[in-house]
């Protein structure tokens, strides 16, 4: 970083420019974007399940055919878990946003659907063949109670939308979040 390219008359400025460029490239690199997580595993699981439900809905509406029946079968099998998760999602937004909680909830649901639809567009022709497999996976779970643990393996909140918007992000304060979890684990 401190080395100066030969032939440059103003080494200090050149070095500063190089440093700024390097810093900018780190900021702009998509790989360097932080993915926000919730402060608690319970909240995180609620958002992951909502993302899975939305993803399956997008598969059904985009790919149609058998996928619409498969989506209905998914909802029928996991209805109690989905209802409970939806209730907790509403509670999260009420807790964090107070009276505007319902509106923030609606905004989140819309943004989530848009994010998953954008992902579908990016995958193009592969999307339906690839992501329709999610129905086979989710219906293969041995127990209805396995649904949150399955949703946690799908990494559906890493682009376009974040878990726990407006809340205290775990990823932004790793040391504090770790202490909280550690104390809970003891």
């Amino acid at each position: 970083m401190s080395t100066t390219p030969p032939g440059h008359g103003r080494p200090g400025r050149a070095a500063a420019l190089l440093g700024a460029a390097a810093a900018l490239s780190m900021v702009l690199a998509p790989a360097a974007q932080a993915v926000q997580r919730c402060g608690t595993d319970v909240d995180q699981a609620v958002f992951e399940l909502e993302a899975l439900k939305t993803e399956l809905m997008v598969v059904a509406t985009t790919c149609k055919g058998q996928n619409e029946d498969r989506y209905n079968a998914f909802v029928n099998r996991y209805r109690p878990a989905l209802v409970e998760s939806n209730r907790r999602l509403g509670q999260y937004f009420s807790r964090v946003h107070g009276r505007s909680g319902q509106r923030q909830n609606d905004i989140f649901i819309t943004e989530l659907a848009n994010a998953r639809s954008n992902q579908a567009r990016q995958l193009g022709g592969d999307y339906c063949v690839r992501n329709a497999g999610l129905f086979e996976e989710v219906m293969a779970l041995p127990a209805v109670t396995d649904l949150p643990a399955y949703a946690a393996t799908k990494d559906l909140l890493s682009s376009g939308v974040t878990a726990c918007p407006g809340g205290t992000p775990a990823a932004a304060a790793p040391a504090r979040a770790t202490r909280t979890r550690s104390s809970r684990a003891r």
Partner: peptide, 12 residues
């Protein structure tokens, strides 16, 4: 495998 379940979350 048919599916995976996350039993222990990573911290980071």
């Amino acid at each position: 495998y048919d599916a995976g379940l996350l039993v222990q979350r990573p911290q980071h």
